[in-house]
Amino acid sequence: MSLLVVNAGIELRRLIKNERKLVVFFSSPNVPQCDQVHNVLKTLKEDTVNSEILFVHVDAEVVSEVSKQLEIISVPTVLFFQLGEEINRVCGASIPDITKSVMNLQSAPANGSPNDLSSRLHSLINKAPVMLFMKGSPEEPRCGFSRQIVSILRSNNAKFETFDILQDEVVRQGLKSYSNWPTYPQLYVKGELVGGVDIVRELADSGELAQMLIVP
């Protein structure tokens, strides 16, 4: 069976963004080493243990913009992605390295595992120096406490980003356990839980909130 051939940069970007486990093989015609890599990837693809992995074959010149973006400077180069993040790359026809990287990708925890959710939550709470998990958005809060906390932050001239937990039940439930905090809104500063609206109000009254919000 052949690798999936992708000829459009847009399609390649979409796969990188959406696939859970992805191997992207950048090649070029008339480069003998590419044939060698192509053959080993086909063999690896056929192994049922790798059934969760999507193997993609692209011509580096045909998807030149993406190649440039990903800093592909020679062929063959093989990139390994998990949940949209590059986790490894092998330049040249190093068959042992390619095989090892495929094994690592195959055994990495898949979407939905506790580890993966933890990583996602960790990324979310660190997405901005001041991060508010609320119901709705600052422009359209969907509960009184979310509205109040936005008001407090704004009157303290806070520069903050928000995440609407009504849009993502996995995050909504996961973050309660992750932070051992049962309610929303939840405010994070530099990745640390500050608390809900009652604590934030208390900190604002004492002047501590303004201090906390000074982020370099």
Partner: peptide
Amino acid sequence: SLVDRHRIVHRLLEEEMKSVHALTLK
């Protein structure tokens, strides 16, 4: 810390918080 104080109360009121729509603490 304030967060830990509230956690103490949350733990005590774990059952009640299932029925309560909004709880604010000092």
